Amino acid sequence: MTSSPTAPPALSDLRRLTPARVALGRAGVSLTTDALLDFTLAHARARDAVHAAFDAAAVAAELGALGLTPLQVSSRAQSRRDYLARPDLGRQLDPASRAMLEAHPSTADLALVIGDGLSPVAVAAQAGEVVRRLLPRLAASGIGVGPAAVVTGARVALGDEIGALLGARIVLVLIGERPGLSAPASLGAYVTLGPRPGRTDADRNCVSNIHAAGISPDEAAFKIAWLVRESMARGASGVALKDESGEGGSTPAELPGPG
């Protein structure tokens, strides 16, 4: 008996594999109404994520409950409008915040920075859980965490100034990523060894796409802990450090849990 050939995958099968907008169909020369409405909704959610208010006090309270010392600071971007129009202002602390951090020197290995970035909703949804799962992993490696800066109007590079002021060997920045049409609440994590003003993106390692349909908080914590540990051990971060956290060794489930 001859078996029938395997049927080619249907478009519905392809759509189940990716959130990308593929094979949307058309009505005449335009998109179908359903596809257009779906796109419009996704675009509105992305815009709302960028302009959402950042509840720095709530983030600070969450960090305090985890045993950290939170410090609420701000960049030189005095408004969301300034933040979006002048990225350079988001890379510098305002004078009052700089003075606050200078008054809190630390001998800890790692400075933790949590900033609103381009998606405050991502920080509210993901950052606390990532930190909760990360702290036991850092403790298991003997890595101390100093005061945690909660920053309004933050860009990634602001972590370099903060880490230098706190005297940290390494800085971890958790920040809201630029919203996409399928992920308006995605968090990014940036690890930089030897933080100081003037560092570039080539000096950083990044774990991105931390959100409900992407990398989970536990997997993110596993990767971040590996990057921090290996960066300090090898004396390198960024392009000089390849993420080999998935190549053998322990899996996330085998490392200490959040307790």
Rank of each mutant, 00 (worst) to 15 (best):
S186R: 06
G167V: 04
A96M: 12
S3W: 03
S79Q: 05
Y83F: 13
A139E: 15
R196Y: 05
A35Q: 02
P147S: 00
F222T: 08
L14Y: 13
R26F: 06
V228F: 00
L255F: 09
G90R: 07
D48S: 15
G235A: 02
Q72A: 11
P217W: 07
A35T: 01
P9D: 14
L68C: 10
P256H: 00
D94G: 05
T18D: 01
Q92M: 12
A185Y: 10
S186Y: 06
I143E: 05
G249R: 09
D218W: 06
G117Q: 09
A124V: 09
G153S: 04
I170K: 02
A125H: 09
A49W: 06
F54Q: 11
G257Y: 00
T69V: 09
V191P: 09
G28C: 00
S30L: 13
A99T: 12
R204S: 10
L63N: 11
V207D: 07
R204E: 07
S250L: 13
G176D: 00
A77H: 01
I175M: 01
L134G: 13
G159T: 06
T33W: 07
V121I: 10
P195N: 08
M232E: 08
R196V: 05
D201L: 02
G128F: 05
G117I: 11
S231Q: 02
L66P: 01
L84K: 08
S3R: 09
A58M: 12
P184H: 09
I224S: 11
D218Y: 07
D94T: 01
E102R: 12
G64M: 08
G146F: 03
L174Y: 03
D38K: 08
N209W: 00
P195V: 00
H211W: 11
V50R: 15
R16A: 15
N205R: 04
H104N: 12
R15A: 08
G153V: 03
T33C: 08
D34F: 04
L112C: 07
G238R: 00
A10V: 11
R234C: 12
L255R: 15
K242I: 12
F54W: 14
A60H: 06
A149I: 02
V171L: 01
L134P: 12
F39Q: 14
H51Q: 14
W226S: 10
V150P: 01
G67F: 02
R47S: 15
A23V: 04
Q72N: 03
R169P: 05
E247R: 05
S3K: 05
P70Y: 01
G249W: 07
P258I: 03
S30H: 14
R178G: 02
